[in-house]
Simulated scan of single mutants.
Amino acid sequence: TGKYKVFIIDEVHMLSKAAFNALLKTLEEPPAHAIFIMATTESHKVPETVVSRSQRFDFRRVSKRDILKLFELVLKEEDISIAKEALSLLADAAEGSFRDALSLLDQVISFGAKKITVEQVEDALGITRISSSQNFLSLLISGNDSGAVKFVKDLAVEGRDLMQFTRNFLEYLRLVLFVKVGVESASELGLSSDDAEQLRGQSSEITSARLLEIIRRVLEAYRESRQTPVPELPLLVAILSLGPVKATVTGVPVLSPAVSRQRKDPADAPNLNLALGKIMEQWVEVLRRVKEYNHSLISSLRLGRLIELNGDELLIAFPYNFHKETVDARKNRIVIEQVLEEVYAAPLRIKVLVERELKNEPATAFPPKDDLLGEALRILGESGG
């Protein structure tokens, strides 16, 4: 017998209301010799009255590197050899949990072999390596619907867990998104040099609009996969609902040879300023979508005045340098250009300047002191509308 009695309640959020009330009475006047440890993965379901009488510790997911170190210790003790790529698959499938990692490793070790290959791990657990996600994304980027459908069909025939594959694919799309917007570089993600190089290439090749559309469709497929009686059906629907890929070269729409010949003479080129009317018609939708991505950015963007559309470059003028620099920040520019591509179904770039620059006058960093109130009223008035 020890000095203290420790009570561990796992998944405490599953307690009934009556059970929580009983527990609360004990927590209000806890015995000196008792320690209660309550664990949960859904803390928002625990009553505030219980949370306020406890000390809260939030644990983060374990890194893939730490899980691999744990595998190394266990395998050395058990004198078992598992391919590095297979261990990487297991670490990814564990989703940051030591417990799940050891459980998966135990399943693999139960094969009884002293040397375990990637293929054995894939067959046993129904999971797929990162190259499968890369190959699938390549098919979607190129718009090869028949190839993508055959890919999913082959996974089903091989007995792969399609729900797990969809989850793995969403994780890979997250990495592509990170690399594309510059949050992380491919070399920092713990991938092999070949996988990192392919990830880098795919993030450069795919447009932001196409990437977001794929993520949305695959997310829908993942949600529906929990209820469908035909495992491959949600993914097949996602493939066919993506639609054709718009051919582009360096962000400019590809013209047919006949059109190209017609436009060799600059005098024959259409007046692209006329298209500015369409931009203005849907500008409210652009502002609405930008607000969903970045609520603070919209206060500066809505002050911009659309000047002209020159090719694929949209010129926007702002009253002061502060607004111009806010919109021109790299992360904000990416969001705006991404939304423009979504709304107008064409890759557009923005060029920003200050109104005074149009008149060849020196730009002002902030509104003059005597105009601060008017500027504030303008922003608040527009946001209220």
Score class of each variant (00 low, 15 high):
S193P: 05
A91E: 01
E72S: 09
V254D: 13
V118T: 15
K17M: 06
F136Y: 12
M38H: 13
G384T: 07
D58K: 07
Y320V: 02
D370H: 05
K324V: 01
L358N: 09
D268T: 03
A94G: 02
G385P: 00
A94Y: 00
I206D: 01
V176G: 04
E292C: 03
G96S: 12
I334F: 07
A148D: 05
R288Y: 12
E337Q: 13
V6C: 13
K246I: 07
I130A: 07
T364V: 08
S146A: 04
G126H: 04
V290L: 10
D328T: 05
E281N: 01
E361H: 15
Q198V: 06
T49G: 12
E184A: 02
R330P: 01
R356M: 09
L70N: 01
E11I: 13
N360M: 14
F111S: 11
A275I: 06
V183F: 07
L139H: 03
F36M: 14
S133M: 04
Q338W: 03
F111E: 08
F57H: 12
L372C: 04
R60D: 07
N21Q: 11
D123N: 09
E355R: 06
G385H: 03
V152F: 00
K150W: 04
R263T: 04
V181P: 02
G381R: 13
K115E: 15
T364C: 05
P253E: 14
Q202Y: 03
E119S: 10
A345N: 12
L89V: 00
I130D: 03
V286L: 09
A221Q: 03
S103H: 11
L219R: 01
G385T: 00
F366K: 15
S203L: 02
E337H: 09
E285T: 12
E382H: 02
Y222R: 01
L137A: 13
L173A: 03
E28I: 14
E205M: 06
R216N: 03
S110C: 09
I82Q: 13
F98N: 04
R167P: 05
S110L: 13
S133K: 00
E85S: 15
R65I: 04
L137H: 05
I239K: 05
R288V: 08
D312S: 14
K45L: 15
R160P: 00
V46G: 00
A101P: 02
E355G: 01
R99Q: 11
Q262N: 08
I350L: 07
L173D: 01
A275M: 08
P367H: 14
S16M: 08
E285N: 10
E325A: 08
Q55M: 10
L255A: 15
R289H: 11
Q198I: 12
R200T: 06
R378M: 15
S16F: 11
V46E: 08
V157L: 08
S81N: 04
W283M: 06
G147N: 09
E220L: 08
K351V: 11
G147T: 05
I82Y: 15
P257D: 06
G182L: 11
N168C: 05
G182C: 06
A269Y: 01
